[in-house]
Design a protein around this nucleic acid. Structure first.
Length: 619
RNA sequence: CGGGGCGUGGCUCAGCCUGGUAGAGCGCUCGGUUCGGGACCGAGAGGUCGGAGGUUCGAAUCCUCUCGCCCCGACCA
């Protein structure tokens, strides 16, 4: 491919509204162009990478017998109403109505009514396709003999994110591989889950990026367990903790935090009263203990301070589709720990856990923020297990400028609900799985997820089969997603340097950047054209920078920015010595050889790159 | 949703405070000289200053509304 014919405009300067590396580099390299917030066009170079990754996905899924199909992206409301998600999915679901519904609205307006347009929305853009696939399968599969079945598509999705950002990493429109499997029973769904887990390891392994499969939160409803696949990158939005001794790797939302023995068990257990002590202005939780003074104490260790959260818990009556209820509860954890509301939500089987509005909390407690405490409040209170056996703690006294001392949660709380794992695990915590290792922290970009759905959709939508006894059962489902466009962006987040992108070989738009450094020189042009043909005949993908009127320096800069793995330079200076030069974009290593040796040398360089890739790949 | 910021040629930005004929660099076109890490000279093309309304003799500039885009936040009771 001649670069003079390629649709591309590289930019020397970083566009102002690009804030993450992958977005900056992709825009500067002329790969993507923004059409609206979170909505991008993929220009030829980017689309080549995307298609290459799609092909890797297709090949690996085919090995497990998955079938590809393509569902609509505009979905009828009825299906979503059937599953209940029309009501519950929220504003990320972009809803609208077609001409029939609009005519109905107009007619009612003509009759002087003021209809609520939203109630006439009868379509949405698909953010995910459980409803559609379930509808397809229930209409086409009736017998256990047809199961299991694993179907997938690669398609443009739309989620109306409250805040799209980070270019392709969190767009509103994006390309996703979404797969769904259907099974006669749980064990078979489990088998498929692990088959897909292994397929994903192959897929991301072939991609040539560092990644980790990570145990993750499966949400309050739905699956029993789930893994996310993360591309490791410092800019990742997710925190991951990984044991340095065993295999346990998990999203911090889910990571088990070890119980911690109370380190002061030998101290005398004091009563809560007389426990008021003046702490004017002491709001930061970490300062609470340090500020404490009485006859025997002048400051306390930070793990003597507790902090308290008042929370609104929302529950849903799932099968009835409508109805929500809210309950107020409390959470007590050590002041130097972080609360984990996801764990609390799962413990309660709730839909959502949110902080109670500060004004409401202050009114309930009768104290300013910073002095609100659990003792006097008559709500169910859950306590992190790091406080099991703890006493002589401080806590807010529900009186502005006062804290209690001598707090012992299981003794002093009116509605004590027990000790549970409710805090965020931290780097350095002992791994509770093996008891030996310690947690190491990583940042990751979630690019894939395997999820056991169970019978949530098959039950609500009547997707059933007949077993060999003629009895009807709901199918057991699994779902498996890969963010295609996000993965390509994540690969860049992980692989770049000051000069530009460092494409992993398997998804580089082109593998070879052939630079003609003297396009005006007929001999150089002849050699460059011949090398291009030979490399392409040997199966390599070559972008030939044949542009005239550009200095070699300008071509080098562009080549670094585009970041194809190998750069082959043909110029009059080299040809004077009878050589062309091959440069590895990542290592900057250069080899010189006669033009006739190009195919062999490029093949050798490719093999080196692929070997290094294999060695550095995911676990 | 809350808070902040920004909209001026394709890109990065100046001009706005203090109203008076719309600018620079990069990129693009043409001519010439160059040619191994973003060359130089000369000549050009390209902008309803996001949009609407208002104030004014006169608005990119002041006022009002609106749209778009970006960031921060949804955190410590």
């Amino acid at each position: 491919m001649k670069q003079s014919r390629l649709l591309i405009q590289t930019l020397r300067e970083t566009p102002r509204d690009a804030d993450v590396v992958s977005q900056q580099l992709m825009i500067r390299a002329g790969m993507i162009q923004k059409a609206a917030a979170g909505i991008y066009s993929y220009l030829p170079l980017a689309y080549r990478s995307i298609r290459k990754f799609e092909e890797i996905v297709r090949e690996e899924l085919a090995r497990d017998g998955c079938q590809e199909l393509l569902m609509p992206s505009v979905l009828p409301a009825e299906l979503w109403q059937e599953s209940g998600r029309w009501t519950f999915y929220g504003d990320e679901l972009l809803r609208f109505c077609d001409r029939k519904a609009k005519a109905e609205i107009a007619e009612r307006r003509g009759r002087g009514e003021t209809p609520d347009e939203r109630s006439f929305y009868n379509f949405c853009l698909g953010p995910t396709h459980e409803e559609v696939i379930t509808d397809i399968v229930r209409k086409n599969v009736r017998s256990y003999k047809q199961l299991p079945m694993n179907l997938f598509q690669i398609q443009t999705k739309f989620r109306d994110e409250r805040r799209p950002r980070f270019g392709l990493m969190r767009g509103r429109e994006f390309t996703m591989k979404d797969g769904y499997s259907f099974h006669v029973d749980d064990p078979d769904a489990d088998r498929e889950y692990w088959a897909m887990f292994n397929a994903y390891k192959r897929i991301f392994g072939r991609l040539g990026v560092k990644f980790r499969p990570v145990e993750a939160d499966s949400g309050a409803i739905g699956g029993s367990f789930t893994h996310e696949f993360h591309v490791l990158a410092g800019s990742g939005e997710d925190a991951i903790l990984s044991c340095d001794a065993c295999e346990y790797t998990s999203n911090i939302e889910k990571t088990e935090a070890p119980a911690l023995p109370f380190a002061y068990a030998q101290e005398a257990v004091l009563p809560l009263k007389p426990s008021h002590f003046a702490t004017p202005g002491v709001i930061a939780m970490e300062d609470q203990a340090r500020a404490f003074k009485d006859a025997e104490h002048d400051g306390l260790p930070p793990d003597h301070a507790s902090k308290f959260y008042l929370l609104d818990v929302t529950s849903r009556i799932q099968d009835e589709v409508v109805g929500e209820s809210t309950q107020r509860i409390g959470l007590v954890i050590r002041a130097d720990h972080e609360p984990n509301f996801v764990k609390l939500r799962n413990l309660l089987g709730a839909e959502a856990v949110e902080l109670t509005a500060i004004e409401v909390a202050e009114e309930m407690a009768g104290a300013k923020s910073g002095f609100i405490g659990p003792v006097e409040l008559n709500v169910p209170i859950y306590v992190d297990r790091s406080l099991e056996g703890a006493f002589n703690l401080t806590c807010g006294a529900n009186r502005t400028d006062y804290h209690h001392f001598g707090f012992k949660p299981d003794r002093d709380l009116k509605q004590f609900q027990g000790f549970h794992d409710l805090r965020m695990a931290q780097e350095g915590d002992t791994c509770p799985r093996c008891g030996k290792g310690r947690y190491q922290a990583f940042r990751g970009i979630e690019v894939g997820q395997v999820f056991k759905l169970g019978t949530k959709y098959s039950k609500s939508m009547g997707c059933t089969f007949l077993d060999d006894q003629g009895r009807e059962h709901p199918m057991v489902m699994g779902c498996y997603g890969i963010g295609i466009t996000r993965t390509v962006a994540a690969a860049i987040e992980q692989n770049y340097d000051a000069d530009g992108i460092l494409w992993p070989w398997p998804i580089a738009p082109y593998q070879i950047h052939l630079l003609n450094l003297d396009p005006g020189n007929a001999e150089v042009a002849t050699v460059a054209d011949r090398v291009e043909r030979e490399l392409e005949a040997a199966g390599f993908e070559v972008l030939h920078d044949d542009r005239e009127g550009l200095s070699p320096g300008a071509k080098f800069k562009d080549a670094d920015l585009l970041g194809f793995p190998l750069r082959l330079m043909v110029g009059s200076k080299g040809l004077k010595d009878g050589v062309v030069e091959l440069r590895d974009r990542r290592t900057k290593a250069v080899v010189k050889f006669k033009p006739e040796g190009a195919v062999a040398e490029v093949a050798a360089a490719r093999n080196r790159i692929l070997e290094a890739l294999e060695a550095a790949g995911g676990r």
